[in-house]
Design a protein around this nucleic acid. Sequence first.
DNA 1: GTCCAGGTGGTCA
DNA 2: TGACCACATGGA
Length: 276
Amino acid sequence: MEVKNIDLKKVFESGQTFRWSEISEGRYVIPYLEGACKIEQTSRYGAEIIEEYGKSQDWNHYFDLYRNYEKMDEELKQEYPIFADAVNFSKGIRILNQAHLETLITFIFSANNNIKRIMNSVNFLCTKYGEKIYDRGGREVHLFPSIEVLSRIDEEEYRSFGAGYRAPYLVDTIDYIYKNQSVFEEFVHLGDEDLLKALESLKGVGPKVARCIALFSYSRDAMFPIDTWIKKAIRSEFNMPDAKDGEISKKVEEYFKKYPGVIQQYIFYYYRFGVK
DNA sequence: GTCCAGGTGGTCA
DNA sequence: TGACCACATGGA
């Protein structure tokens, strides 16, 4: 299966998922729900799913193939000329539609943390507790652990995965989800504001993490998560070096009306990895 | 040694 | 509401 307009390396690095593993140059294994795929970069912005295993999954949905990124990129450059560099630099990034439980838990790990460390922690967790499935060559891949399995892990063990002070938040939120397993289905039907409110009621989930979960797992394109890199970008591009969080949020809300989630991800990637 | 990382919870005014 | 601070932990 072909995936157009994607740069796998950029998506892998882009901090929206912590679950991909690079098995060789330009080749990645991606676990998703009860299945996985192996995907390879076959041209500058083209990739091919070369193997699927475990339960069959909707990869069109996962890779957001129902949206035309070439067209969106052109519109974004028109709408936000001062971020044209960011759009160009980030070409090939797509906004993934990831699993709800996995996105919730991995983004609790992400708070005040860095991408490498988050990936390591999540990898420890999945390697020890995730169900294994195997590709044609017998290589094993660990799925994300089920809520039942997660609910039996204690605070000390989350610390051993590098969760640090977030460990009690994980235990609390996992316990709540375990006892209210219908919430993810209910979340799908909530409007954006109600979804954010519901997510932020969970321990370890504040405004930023809630927006990431809504954007990367509930297809809420109006979301614009504000992290340290976005703050740098806004302060710099709008020439407001001393702006406090409240002013930045206000600026973001009034300025980013078109495809906020996509342009946010482009700006994040550009300021994180581009020259500035 | 200090600063930083895809921030949040708790407290106090 | 908003401002402040403590919070693990590894890398620069």
